[in-house]
């Protein structure tokens, strides 16, 4: 006897700027064994096996590389850690909102990474390096928890209205989380300069506390809290 099967329905955003004038939503159906569940990414890979013109990014397939961020039924997330059974059908897949579409689910992340680069996301320490390593107490190290885990998937920044309206001026939740990751690092000596670079009305203060970023982060991080910490530091510095 053959196994019972079921059909899963999809609507996927398709746009190839070389030939299409307008984007369209294309219907797909995938037949899978009734009892089987899988991650959304696996389902998309099977769709691609049927229609190899579909473009999307993925790599690690386990929520580590941050490349398969997309808009799933209206909410940003990683396809590789989203269970198919948890989604309402037809499952609507669109590219991350607010960024230029290169093709289908692939977006141009240039402006996102430009904002990330602005916060100088690396340790700055002008003291001579010690023989072995720069030590931290467990308490100092603990301050970086909830910050260093970010995989730069851009789910947060592309769900943030303030980032949609001012992507060149507002650093966005992902960049600000990393800004705070280095402001909070006891080994970093550039805290004052880092804060000074953020005092303008856009870089940090465009955050209106909408908290979409917290809602979507697939790593469970809280950029709004980090932004709050930056704001407190700025006020304490008296800028």
């Amino acid at each position: 006897m053959s196994e019972a099967m079921r059909t899963v329905k999809f609507k996927i955003y398709r746009f190839n700027p070389e030939v299409d004038i307008k984007p369209t939503m294309k219907d797909y159906e995938l037949t899978i064994p009734d009892k089987q569940d899988m991650m959304l990414l696996e389902a998309i890979l099977r769709i691609k096996a049927m229609d190899d013109s579909l473009a999307f990014r993925r790599s690690c397939r386990e929520g580590v590389c941050g490349s398969d961020g997309m808009n799933i039924n209206g909410r940003n997330g990683l396809a590789c850690v989203t269970l198919l059974s948890a989604l309402k059908q037809p499952i609507e897949l669109r590219p991350l909102p607010g960024l230029p579409v290169i093709r289908d689910l692939v977006v141009d992340m240039k402006v996102f990474f430009e904002q990330y680069a602005k916060v100088k996301p690396y340790l700055i320490n002008d003291e001579p390096p010690p023989a072995k390593e720069r030590l931290q107490s467990p308490a100092e190290r603990k301050k970086l928890d909830g910050l260093y885990e970010c995989i730069l998937c851009a789910c947060c920044s592309t769900s943030c209205p303030s980032f949609w309206w001012n992507p060149e001026k507002f650093i966005g939740p992902a960049g600000l989380l990393q800004a705070y990751r280095f402001i909070a690092d006891s080994r970093d000596t550039a805290k004052v300069e880092r804060l000074e670079a953020l005092t303008d009305p856009f870089s940090v203060f465009r955050c209106r506390g909408v908290m979409n970023c917290v809602d979507v982060c697939p790593k469970g991080l809280n950029p709004t809290r980090a932004i709050g910490h930056i704001r407190s530091e700025l006020l304490a510095e008296g800028n």
Binding site: L198, T199, D200, P201, S203, F205, R231, L234, L235, N239
Partner: peptide
């Protein structure tokens, strides 16, 4: 640093505080 001449104080912290 993003420049903005037309905001209240030209400074995000002060604007926010005001």
């Amino acid at each position: 640093m993003v420049r903005s001449a037309t905001s209240l104080t030209g400074n995000g912290v002060r604007d926010w505080l005001w």
